[in-house]
Each structure stands twice: as structure tokens, then as C-alpha cells.
Nucleic acid binder design. Structure first.
Length: 469
RNA sequence: GGCGCCAUACCCAAGUGGCUAAGGGGACGGUCUGCAAAACCGUUAUUCGGCGGUUCGAAUCCGCCUGGCGCCUCCA
């Protein structure tokens, strides 16, 4: 089945065709490691990760690049404040990002390029732009991109170059030929890291690193370039100008941008201090449920981050896990009375999931299919206590497999038996004995004690079952 | 000021020209159960912010209005 992607540049859903058949080159604009990662960063990473997983599941090979911008004004400012080298701040936040990405089952990227390790590539592309007349070094050592020399400028963000100029309230830098021009290279200032170049020492501007690093690992034309909506302008617009200005080729065939995570209806953002560090969130909620929640809304729509919704997500996601757990307990036996019907339903829901994901990675709709699958399974399971049929098992396999396409179901379905403490097992036995002698008061007492200790007991057809929490 | 996005039930959320408007949470009723829990069955939008228009037909297309948000400056 062919995949359709909403491309920001074209402004519509278009069929996906890779540059090279069977291979997808993806670049997701990573974080500027100036602060701790928050939920918004994780959303964009999860969006990228699930897109990658879907391609891989379909058999494509994906080269996935996620960058760390490890030198910029804020990182330097924070480092100077703390009296440490800027790399201390950058690495510290990078480590945190990787830690929580892993906690949310985000696959490792093929490459995690850092700006400071690609200075030569950056210098090369700037030199190329200077040679082509698309950039110029000012007397003070700054190098600027000559925006008006690139006639496609504004095509991604749908901005008119003249509107930009009139609306610009930024102070005009005297060194610029035109107020629209942006910095590719910033000349060295006291207390700042600097590298030597043909036009003087200094450090890279903000946008050039992504052009240099993405093309290094993925070639001059990427298949997919993604990131948060806020990167459309100026970041990605400038990347296009730099990359296409240098290569003369289309920089990225598809631009994928995700919507905000909001707090109280407003964009979560570091600069406004309205954000929830992911470190806090994983303390309060199950990582699997967090990932589930962030995919319960289409990636281009905003999603509100609110505890009540997260609790609902935990509950809803728990249902899917319960289905898998219950099925795992059953022994595979003969055919179900409705074997063919179950087989057909399972296949239908599986197909619906694939269709949803193929339509611009509609995870919200895809999750709906997972619940449909779950109901099909539960119903069948209810009808044949203690066992499951091949058709049911095949539906269970689909549920598990498709859930993993969304990066779900990575934690064990239940705690191993040995994990149950002696006293809990003793309480369970107490309750079982009380129930056997129909001493309900005593049985309930034991159940309450279990609940107080964090365990629930469910009386299934095949006997009582202990579950944590 | 320029450009753009969003508005679907009590809540969240799919659906973007025509089958009964997915799915989840909640609520209510039922099955099962000693009681619960879990699971299952049923009910919960003749209607998609408002007003017009296009069309045989619109939640879906167009216009206006109202309300919310974003980008134009660092930002996933």
C-alpha cells in the first residue's frame, strides 16, 4: 500500500516516493541542548520514531538522523553563568534527552551528529555559498546569506519576502547588505568558543548546521525532513535557502511538521517557562501510557498536556495490555465456534490499521483499530474460557505487532511470579481459604489488605489472579 | 499589520462531498460474580461554532461572522 504524506511545502497530502527504492532518508531536527528536555521534544521525537517504525515494518531501510545543536547563544550564556565550558551544559542535556528518549522506547538514530563535530562540513558549505555569490563575509568576520539571491525564499513558510522586510522589527545589523540576510557564521567574541576559518575565527550561525549535517549523512536530497511547527520559519526556510543554494538540488522531498504540546491551551515552550520536563512526567505516569497518549491525536494537531487526559490514557492503554495478558494465559486449543468470523474481523481491523497509518501516519485512527482488535479478541476469549483458538491467536499477534509499529508494548506484560512477596502470597492464600469456607467478611478483609499493599485480585474463571496496583 | 491553523456528544478524538458520524474516558442499564474486579452486551451527536451560498447530496467545498491558537524574534 502506498503511503501518503502531508508535505508542508506543497501544502497537501501527496504519495510518498523515495529517492532510492526501498530506502528512506529521514532527518528530524533535534534539540538545541540548552535545557532539560520537555514533553514537546518527546512528541516530535515520537512522531519521527513511529514514522520510521512504520517504514521499517513495511520493509524499507531507514537512515534516521537526529541532530544535537550543541553550540548557540543560550548554551554559551548558561555555561558562562555556571562558570563551566559550554560543552558541559550541552552534553549534560544531551544525555538527559537520550535517557528519556530511551525510556519512551524511541529507537536510536542511525546518526546523532553534533555541530561542534562538523565544523569543517559547515565551513565547506559556507565557502561554497560565498563562491556562488549567495553569501558574503562582512568586514567584521560575520558571514551572511544573501536572501534575495535565492528566489525560492519563503516557499516553505508561504511568506512573501517583502512582507517580511516591512514586518521586521529586528534591529538592522549594519554589516548586512539587506536586513533579511541571516548569519551563517558569527565572528568570535570574548568568552565564546571559536573555530578558525578562511574569513576569520568564530562559530556557526543557527541554521547552517542542519544543512551541513543532513546532507553529509543523507545526500543532497533527503526524503523526509521533520520537526516541530515552530521550525518552519525561519529555521527550515533558511535551511532550504542554504542547501539548495549550495547544491542546486531539491533539499528535501517531504517536509513533515508536528503540532504543539500545549499547556492550558498555549504552546509548551522553554522561553516562556511554560513547560513540563519529561523527567517529572515519567515519575507520575507510565511511560507506555505517555507514548500512547501522545499518539492519540494526529501529529499535526495540537495536543493538550493535562493530567486528567493522561490518567484516561493509562486506563485505555491498560485495556489493550489486559487483552494481551489474558490471551497469553490461555492455551491454544481447537477452533472457536465463530472461527471464520473472528479470522475475518481480525484481518479487517489489521487492514484498517495499515490504511490509517498509510494515510499521513494517522496514529489516532490506527489506535482505534487496536481497540477494535482488542474487543474482537476479548469477546472470543469470553466465549471459550481457559483456551483460545488459532484465529484468536492470530488476532492477538496482530494487536501486538501493530502496537509495536507505534512503539507500544515494550514492557513485560506482567511481573514475574517470583516478584510476588511472601506476605502478599500469604494474604492471597488467606482469602482463598476464607472463600472456600464462604467466610466472606474474612475474604474481603484479605482483599482490602492486598489493596492496601498495592495489589488487586481478580477472580477469573480459572481462579484468582493477582495484579500489581 | 502580514501569513496560517483550529472549532465534531458530558470530556478526549477520528472522519474532509453520498454506506448506520470510528475509537477511548465518563455515566446509566444488563450478563458473569458471594460481593467486587476484569471482560462482554446495550444506551448516551437525526447532528458536526453561527449565518448564508455551491451541489441531486456537505461535518466535509466557497464567503462572511464569532471564539481559540500559532508563526513573522530563541523555540520540537
Amino acid at each position: 500500500m502506498s503511503i501518503r504524506i502531508y508535505d508542508t511545502l506543497k501544502g497537501e497530502k501527496v504519495p510518498f516516493e523515495p529517492v532510492r527504492a526501498g530506502h528512506v532518508g529521514m532527518y528530524v531536527c533535534g534539540v538545541t541542548v540548552q535545557n532539560v528536555p520537555h514533553v514537546g521534544h518527546m512528541r516530535s521525537s515520537i512522531v519521527g520514531d513511529s514514522i520510521r517504525r512504520f517504514f521499517e515494518w513495511q520493509g524499507d531501510e531507514v537512515t534516521f538522523v537526529y541532530n544535537f545543536t550543541d553550540v548557540d547563544d543560550k548554551i554559551i550564556a548558561i555555561a558562562n553563568d555556571e562558570g563551566v565550558d559550554f560543552t558541559v551544559v550541552a552534553r549534560r542535556n544531551e544525555v538527559l534527552f537520550l535517557k528519556y528518549a530511551d525510556m519512551l522506547n524511541i529507537k536510536s538514530a542511525s546518526h546523532y551528529p553534533r555541530v561542534t563535530e562538523h565544523i569543517q562540513e559547515i565551513i565547506d558549505i559556507i565557502q561554497k555559498l560565498i563562491d556562488k555569490g549567495k553569501a558574503y563575509a562582512a568586514p567584521n568576520g560575520d558571514v551572511f546569506y544573501r536572501v534575495r539571491s535565492f528566489n525560492g525564499y519563503g516557499k516553505l513558510s508561504k511568506k512573501n519576502i517583502d512582507d517580511l522586510q516591512s514586518g521586521s522589527r529586528v534591529q538592522v545589523d549594519e554589516a548586512k547588505e539587506d536586513p533579511l540576510d541571516f548569519a551563517l557564521w558569527k565572528s568570535a567574541k570574548p568568552g565564546e568558543p571559536a573555530w578558525e576559518t578562511p574569513w576569520g575565527s568564530g562559530r556557526p550561525g543557527w541554521h547552517i548546521e542542519c544543512s551541513a549535517m543532513s546532507m553529509k549523512y543523507l545526500g543532497e536530497t533527503l526524503d523526509i525532513h521533520g520537526g516541530g511547527e515552530d521550525l518552519i520559519f525561519p529555521h527550515h526556510e533558511n535551511e532550504i535557502a542554504q542547501s539548495e543554494g549550495a547544491s542546486g538540488k531539491c533539499f528535501s522531498n517531504y517536509w513533515v511538521h508536528n503540532g504543539w504540546v500545549t499547556l492550558g491551551g498555549e504552546k509548551m515552550s522553554k522561553s516562556t517557562f511554560k513547560f513540563r520536563p519529561i523527567s517529572e512526567v515519567v515519575e507520575d505516569f507510565e511511560p507506555e501510557a505517555i507514548r500512547f497518549y501522545l499518539q492519540s491525536t494526529h501529529y499535526r494537531s495540537p495536543i493538550e498536556f493535562i493530567e486528567e487526559r493522561l490518567r484516561e490514557a493509562e486506563k485505555a492503554y491498560g485495556k489493550l495490555r489486559n487483552t494481551l495478558l489474558e490471551a497469553a494465559k490461555r492455551t491454544l486449543a481447537g477452533e472457536h465456534p465463530r472461527e471464520e468470523e473472528i479470522q475475518a474481523e481480525g484481518a479487517k481491523h489489521r487492514e484498517a490499521f495499515i490504511e490509517a497509518m498509510s494515510d499521513d501516519f494517522n496514529t489516532a485512527r490506527a489506535l482505534g483499530s487496536l481497540f477494535d482488535l482488542s474487543r474482537t479478541i476479548n469477546r472470543a476469549l469470553d466465549e471459550t474460557p481457559g483456551s483460545k483458538s488459532p484465529a484468536v491467536q492470530s488476532a492477538v499477534d496482530s494487536l501486538f505487532e501493530l502496537g509495536q509499529v507505534l512503539g507500544l508494548f515494550w514492557l513485560p506484560l506482567e511481573d514475574e511470579g517470583e516478584d510476588i512477596p511472601e506476605e502478599i502470597q500469604a494474604l492471597l492464600k488467606q482469602r482463598n481459604d476464607a472463600r472456600a469456607s464462604k467466610d466472606w467478611a474474612k475474604a474481603d478483609e484479605a482483599r482490602d489488605a492486598l489493596a492496601a499493599a498495592g495489589w488487586v485480585v481478580e477472580d477469573r474463571a480459572d481462579g484468582p489472579r493477582l495484579k500489581r496496583k
